[in-house]
Design a protein around this nucleic acid. Structure first.
Lengths: 66, 66
DNA sequence: CAAAAATGTTAAGTTTATATAACATAATGT
DNA sequence: ACATTATGTTATATAAACTTAACATTTTTG
């Protein structure tokens, strides 16, 4: 199962969903869906998010058992 | 632009495209498309590939300028 | 408190990832 | 040389990512 820390890290930087979306070229709804874990973004978008949030991509997204 | 080392690492382990595909639950054509750089796989598939190929995901896929 | 901004959520549409199938060529093994 | 296996490639179909739009609720701010 895919997990992520997008919401936590976005909050740490004080970005709104819209601001983060704009920085990685997606809409705020896409950010919301990712934060809810409703889908598995492309590696391209994932790498952009990791860059903006200044973490290794493996620390932003990971797979858990179950 | 998205780059990856899937082909190189698959060769290192001596896996065929079919074998690698089976290990990460996709078809050999999907592996072929990824190796050709024709699309940006999901983060879920990317994480599975990194696990099987025993590298950090950031060492398997990365973004380059232009 | 009232207004504005942010978030939650959902529906419908478009684009892209992935599957399935098919055929051709290259590489490997007997 | 022949048979088998791996790879290249392309077409069509389906599933999932992502967009756009809309409205409701929550949070923030004057």
């Amino acid at each position: 199962m895919l997990k992520n820390r997008v919401k936590e890290l976005r909050a740490r930087y004080g970005f709104t969903q819209s601001e983060l979306g704009k920085q990685v070229d997606v809409t705020r709804q896409t950010i919301a869906f990712i934060e809810k874990g409703e889908f598995s973004p492309s590696i391209t978008l994932s790498l952009k998010l990791a860059k903006v949030l200044q973490v290794e991509i493996g620390d932003l997204f990971w797979l858990e058992e179950e």
